[in-house]
């Protein structure tokens, strides 16, 4: 199997504002969000980062997408380091997270063209892709409706379509089904499988066990910023349900590492 992404000893520490200190109920001025985290993802597979709230999943994905820099460690994406060559990494990935918003004022059609231009896609390819993606997600009817007037689900679908304007080989999804109803969530998970069938590599983060069981080939369980377990779905489950195994891993980790 060909590795497409290697995360090596990732570490990220945030300094906390006073407000955040209260929120996190801590006196410490810093928060280690990701702590020496390593994993590899293979070409053509769906890799899932599974973890509870605050585990550091989003932070890890943002480092992979080169939006933030790791304090230590590096991620090599398709041969390019996020630390040394962030621009090359950005060209190769599609990144979708709920914190990336689309401008309310514009229509899906306009935004698709705009982002295509930023990625340097020629108009013919762009129109072909737009037609395909818009019809796949039922955006056509809403192509000329301002983002402000779209439903949450439709917004999410438009964001998904736009994160794929450049047809990237590596796709990074943070909580792809969060806040979506079952129908929309199914459209998205079905599409993830479709992408895998097209040979794309996908890295997603979630705290939903069923999503992992449904789509992921391999899983990394992240707890307190550390990789508690990382293997194929089968190996991790070890004959049990993923949920049961997760609690085993969780208590093992907490038991062994209590301060």
């Amino acid at each position: 199997m060909e590795t497409i992404l290697v995360a090596e000893g990732l570490k990220k520490t945030f300094s906390l504002s006073r407000k955040q200190q209260k929120l996190e109920k801590t006196n410490s001025k810093t928060k280690v969000a990701v702590d020496n985290l390593s994993f590899s993802a293979y070409k053509g597979e769906i890799f899932g980062l599974l973890g509870p709230n605050g585990a550091g999943k989003t932070t890890t994905l943002r480092m992979i997408a080169s939006l933030i820099r790791p304090d230590q460690g590096d991620v090599v994406v398709d041969g390019f380091s996020v630390v040394k060559d962030p621009q090359k990494v950005r060209e190769r990935i599609g990144f979708l997270t709920s914190e990336l918003k689309l401008e309310d004022f514009f229509t899906p059609n306009y935004l698709f063209d705009f982002f295509s231009e930023l990625y340097g896609i020629d108009p013919t390819t762009r129109n072909e892709r737009k037609q395909k993606l818009f019809s796949r997600f039922g955006i056509e009817k809403f192509a000329e409706v301002k983002v402000a007037n779209l439903s949450t689900g439709m917004k999410q679908k438009v964001s998904l379509a736009i994160s794929l304007v450049h047809d990237p080989d590596i796709i990074i999804f943070d909580e792809p089904t969060n806040g979506l109803d079952v129908l929309t969530a199914k459209t998205v998970t079905d599409y993830l499988l479709e992408l895998r069938n097209m040979g794309k590599s996908i890295i997603l983060s979630t705290h939903i066990f069923s999503l992992v069981e449904k789509v992921c080939d391999r899983v990394g369980v992240v707890i307190d910023g550390r990789m508690a377990a990382c293997d194929t779905l089968e190996q991790i489950r070890n004959g049990k349900s993923l949920e049961d195994r997760f609690f085993d891993i969780y208590s093992e980790m907490k038991g062994g590492n209590d301060e």
């Binding site: 939006l67 914190e99 918003k101 930023l118």
Partner: peptide, 12 residues
């Protein structure tokens, strides 16, 4: 509004 982050993900 978080729209500039969407721009910063692009290789621009």
């Amino acid at each position: 509004r978080g729209t500039i982050a969407t721009l910063l993900v692009t290789p621009m």
